[in-house]
Amino acid sequence: MESSAPATPSETPRPALLSGKMGKEGQGSDALLRLVKAVLPPLLGLAAFVAIWYVATLSGGSGIPGPVATWQEAVKLFGDPFYRNTPNDQGIGWNVLASLQRVGIGFGIAAAVGIPLGFLIGRFDFLARMLSPIISLLRPVSPLAWLPIGLLVFKKADPAATWTLFICSIWPMILNTAAGVKQVPQDYLNVARVLALSEWQVFTRILLPAVLPAVLTGVRLSIGVAWLVIVAAEMLTGGVGIGFWVWDEWNNLNVAHILIAIGVIGIVGLLLDQGLMLLAKRFTFESR
């Protein structure tokens, strides 16, 4: 987790990496060149980012801590990520886990509803035309607008946050699944018809595998949106969670912690996205 502080890696490892690889030059300077080409630009970008950050915060007037101070805070913070003092004072690890759990539940319910609904909408045109005005109307609404409804119905903050995540992550899954079903080539369905597959077999043998890549795209987008929304939702609902933690640190005027939280949120989001990308690759077939 130490990589969460963007200050570290940029300056030191680059020369080390280069010199380390230089030794093997005899084996393949081509591979080395490719490695340098792949690694150098992102490292330079990070270095530039940190440099600008450093210069901009040099005077200290803005109240935003510089990279060094932030790094020192991060080391302290991640030295003990799983402590528990009071419900409102827990380690950053617990906060991240709480947020992930909320996203998992809200997203899970959304998947359980949205993916089957997407299949139905994709397969039955009547249903598609019935639901499309509602979906078009509700989809662009900021999920946070649903929070009060959740609070009203569930009377508690936690389920209300889950409800908000549910609402925001359901649309990409419905739409992508439905589009995937619609795009299943007629050829595959013709094969199914010649084989006289039953409707259930058409579903499990043809539609499901054919649509899986589209479904996974929907899942990826959904989780991305959910992870965006969780921070805002938790700021409003309180409790444990990375969003609440950001808000709490703001009230404490601990800006270094907020910066660290931003880094953590970014990295967790990146990991979620990359993980799902890997999963999607695993299930994607090459068509012809």
Partner: peptide, 29 residues
């Protein structure tokens, strides 16, 4: 009235299911 396996078709564009192996495609039938 409708297609059925007693009238098998070899499609012009072969129409193999890309997520099944060659074995799997035939085995399904």
């Amino acid at each position: 009235a409708k297609p059925g396996p007693e009238r098998a078709v070899v499609f012009q564009n072969h129409s193999l299911l890309p997520w099944l192996t060659c074995f799997g495609n035939i085995h399904l039938a």
